[in-house]
């Protein structure tokens, strides 16, 4: 049997909102250690890696490893039926055809059950090598979302240049160009407002706006986002999910033809 319970469905609701633009379906690998999802978007340009540790759940039981193929659109619809304060329980039997989502209101007076059919999926699992990145930037996630949105008006791609002094975002298009520079924070009163740059060597990489704007849908999950970059390797855009895990987005850089 598999059963995982969260005291508040808000986290799971936010996780679904953070992946639904990129993924139509995904396999949820459930084991004793937790739930893992690794899936690419349809165009195979980006990869989403989600990790929810079992110890972060209020109740977690997984008698045997399960691979459950889920339709992300349906799952998003189901999670939207839960109130943020509802308790959510995911339940499946061994060799399941279905997964059950159970929402219970705080006063325990409303109990909703949604059963979703699982799908058989050919899955391609990718090994992600351990990488030491040239630049690792931590910055407020809302600021990153704002920059991606603002610069998307000017072009289809954003160039990110990172040096010791700061991080510069540039977009250029037919109507003009724009750039936004953020300096490393000297002294931040609040940790979540800080811009912190850990640089081994400067990098300059260009990424498609479309994907960055999908990644920032994870903004409600965490006040800070971590961007890890090295020359000619995928960007890693990471959001912590409370004390339970993280979501990482990998995006291949654009290259000159």
């Amino acid at each position: 049997m598999f059963e995982a319970r969260l005291a508040q469905s808000a986290i799971l609701k936010k996780v679904l909102e953070a992946v639904k633009d990129l993924l139509t379906e995904a396999t949820f690998e459930c084991s004793d250690s937790g739930i893992q999802v690794q899936a690419m978007d349809n165009a195979h340009v980006s990869l989403v890696s989600l990790n929810l540790r079992s110890d972060g759940f209020d109740k977690y039981r997984c008698d045997r490893n399960l691979s459950m193929g889920m339709n992300i659109g349906t799952m998003t619809k189901i999670l939207r039926c839960a109130s943020s304060e509802d308790t959510v329980t995911l339940r499946a039997w061994d060799n399941p055809d279905n997964i059950i989502f159970i929402f219970e209101s705080q006063n325990k007076e409303k109990l909703s059950e949604y059963e979703m059919k699982l799908i058989n999926m050919d899955q391609e699992h990718l090994g992600i090598p351990e990488t030491v990145y040239s630049c690792v930037v931590k910055m407020p996630s809302q600021e990153f979302a704002r920059i991606c949105k603002d610069l998307s008006q000017f072009g289809e791609a954003i160039t990110i240049a990172c040096s010791k002094e700061g991080i510069k975002f540039t977009a250029a298009g037919d109507y003009g160009n724009a750039n936004i520079k953020l300096a490393q924070t000297a002294e931040a009163d609040k940790e979540e407002e800080a811009v912190i740059i850990d640089m081994q060597e400067p990098v300059k990489l260009t990424f498609a706006c479309r994907y960055l704007n999908s990644f920032v849908k994870a903004t409600p999950l965490c006040a800070q986002v971590k961007l890890s970059m090295s020359g000619d390797v995928p960007l890693v855009c990471e959001y912590q999910i409370g004390d339970i895990g993280h979501i990482r987005y990998y995006l291949a850089p654009k290259i000159d033809d």
Binding site: P129, Y250, I255, D256, D257
Partner: peptide, 13 residues
């Protein structure tokens, strides 16, 4: 500019 597939950066397991 062109876009490489993410699969070209990682190994299939």
């Amino acid at each position: 500019m062109s876009q490489r597939s993410i699969t070209s950066f990682f190994t299939r397991t």
